[in-house]
Computed example of a mutant assay.
Amino acid sequence: MKRSAEIAALEQRLGHRFADPERLRRALTHSSMSAPGREDNQRLEFLGDRVLGLVMAEALLSEDRGASEGQLAPRFNALVRKEACAEVAREIDLGAALKLGRSEMMSGGRRKMALLGDAMEAVIAAVYLDAGFGTAKALVLRLWGDRIARVEEDARDAKTSLQEWAQARGMVPPSYTEVAREGPDHAPVFTIEARLENGAAARATAGSKRKAEQQAASGLLDKVTNG
């Protein structure tokens, strides 16, 4: 398969040149774009999820040799959840290379968390099939960067702490509302408001919804606990 400029540019961002670029093309093809003779990325997503899981399980065991299963499980979940995959996908501008049907294209599919997360898993599988587990592992560790080192903090995050604070006082869990979105599709900036049923609220702005939610939750927690 001849490389398109788009595929070549993504290979550079990934740091891997495919022996068979067709694997990467398939990893980028959403089901809305599939057709007879053109496979979508769902099977690769299934495989990539397992490859990512093994890489993260190994990394966590190596990072903290004294951690119990109960400590490792939430850290693992924080690293492999769809939001984390989508965040990494945004950092390498994976959305720009997605192959989407018209309906998904028109509805902003290139910035949807689920589509980005699925495609990131599919790309991991494509690298695994193209060059083996060692190369896929190196890719994941490079792209996830310091997330592994800081995952204990992320696993017990501000949103969790705020929810526990609310529940301890008989309140329903806090709500999170997107009140603004700015910037281009490939680099959006979100403003999120966290609100408790007693009316207390805080807003934060960040380059991903998850980060904005975390920062809003942190600000609201500080407000209700420190006045």
Rank of each mutant, 00 (worst) to 15 (best):
D154M: 15
R150F: 13
A180V: 05
W165S: 05
Q163I: 06
A158Q: 03
E182T: 14
G170W: 07
E152P: 01
V179R: 10
D154R: 15
E164Q: 14
E152G: 07
Q163V: 04
K159C: 11
W165N: 01
P174F: 04
R181S: 08
E164C: 06
D154K: 14
D157T: 08
M171F: 08
V172K: 10
D157G: 15
Y176A: 07
I148D: 01
E164H: 12
R169H: 00
E182V: 10
A180T: 11
W165H: 05
Y176E: 09
G170M: 06
Q167Y: 07
G170P: 01
D157V: 08
R181H: 05
Q163L: 09
M171E: 02
R150A: 12
E182S: 13
V179E: 13
I148Y: 08
S175K: 14
P174A: 05
A158V: 01
T160Y: 12
D157R: 07
D154E: 15
A168V: 02
A180W: 03
E178A: 12
V172H: 08
V151L: 06
D154L: 15
T160P: 06
D154I: 13
E164R: 09
D157W: 02
V179C: 05
S161V: 10
P173G: 01
A168W: 00
Q167F: 08
S175W: 06
V179H: 03
W165Y: 11
E152F: 02
A155V: 06
E178L: 14
V179G: 05
K159T: 13
T160K: 11
V179F: 04
P174E: 06
L162R: 01
A149H: 12
